Computed example of a mutant assay.
Amino acid sequence: MKKTLLSLMTLITFGLSNAQVKEKGVIEITPKIGASAFFENNEDDFTDSNSGVEFGATVDYYFNDRWSLRSGLIFDKMGGKYDVGDTFLWEDKLNYLTIPINANWHFGSTRKWNLNFGLAPSFLLDAKVNDMEIPSSDIESFQLGFNFGIGYKIEVTRRFGILLDFQYFNGLTNISKSTNNVDITNVGTSFNVGGVFHL
């Protein structure tokens, strides 16, 4: 009985440790959804944050079991809220499609943790103040940001896992086309849950 249990435990341990090893060329696709909170940085004067839903999918291409290149398509609601008087709230609702280009470092003894960082170009899809359209002459259609995040993958099977993921975004370029030298950038965080599919 002891030999059987020992053999079974050895087999499970070997299987789990092997499941973590990634070779060059392995691809993982992760559709995900989460909650975000963004605000605008107007020359170090920060707005209140607005909440939104972040969703999309990322793809990791592995170079070895520690490093991968991550990219994808992410929909983000950015912008911020301004208090104007006691009864009026002014909210910028800026919807972007973001294409992260990140190095992704997988760490821990079983490589379940990951730390990703890199550039995040974003393309404006829609811009409103409350329910009124913001004219394209007032806002840039493109922004470049820096993002980083940390995640933990729960392996369900050898080819499927669940990712818990926290991301931070900081805009590097001015989104305002104003001629009075106003510098406005988007800043925010998101917490996401995704399904990891090992191809």
Rank of each mutant, 00 (worst) to 15 (best):
D165K: 00
T10Y: 05
G188N: 05
D60W: 01
V193W: 01
S136H: 04
A35S: 06
F107V: 03
T13A: 11
N50L: 09
A19H: 00
L125G: 09
G151C: 01
E43S: 10
G80L: 04
S7F: 07
S178K: 07
V84N: 14
I184K: 12
S137W: 03
V26S: 15
E91K: 12
K24G: 11
T87N: 15
F75L: 12
L144N: 05
K177N: 07
L124M: 08
T110K: 13
G194D: 06
K81Q: 14
T30V: 13
F160D: 03
W105G: 07
D126F: 05
L8Y: 07
R158T: 01
D45C: 06
F75C: 07
Y96V: 00
K22A: 02
K112V: 03
I101P: 11
G56L: 01
T30Y: 08
F107D: 08
V26L: 12
D92M: 04
V156D: 03
I99L: 13
V26K: 14
S141Q: 11
K93N: 10
V196Y: 11
L115E: 01
Q20L: 00
I139E: 04
K153W: 00
D60N: 15
D83S: 14
G34S: 01
K32I: 01
W67C: 01
Y152L: 00
D60V: 00
F55S: 06
F88V: 15
G161N: 01
E133Y: 10
G25Q: 06
D131N: 15
N95F: 03
F63H: 04
F160V: 10
V59R: 09
V59F: 12
G194L: 02
I134E: 03
Y61L: 14
V196F: 12
F142P: 02
I162M: 07
F39I: 02
G171A: 14
L11D: 15
N114G: 09
L125H: 04
G118R: 04
G85P: 12
H106Y: 11
F148H: 13
N170Y: 14
F14S: 12
T110Q: 14
E140L: 01
W113M: 09
M9Q: 11
V53N: 06
Q167P: 09
F166V: 07
V182K: 13
M132K: 13
F160T: 08
M78D: 06
V59P: 10
F148R: 08
T87F: 11
T173I: 05
D65I: 00
L97I: 10
G56V: 01
S136N: 09
V21K: 02
T98S: 10
S68W: 02
Y96N: 03
D86L: 11
D183I: 02
G118C: 07
G188F: 03
G161W: 00
Y61D: 14
K3E: 14
F142R: 02
D44H: 11
K93M: 00
K2L: 06
L73N: 12
I29F: 12
L144Q: 03
N186V: 06
G52K: 00
L125K: 03
K24Y: 13
W90Y: 15
Q20F: 04
G194C: 07
T13H: 06
T173E: 08
L6N: 09
S7P: 04
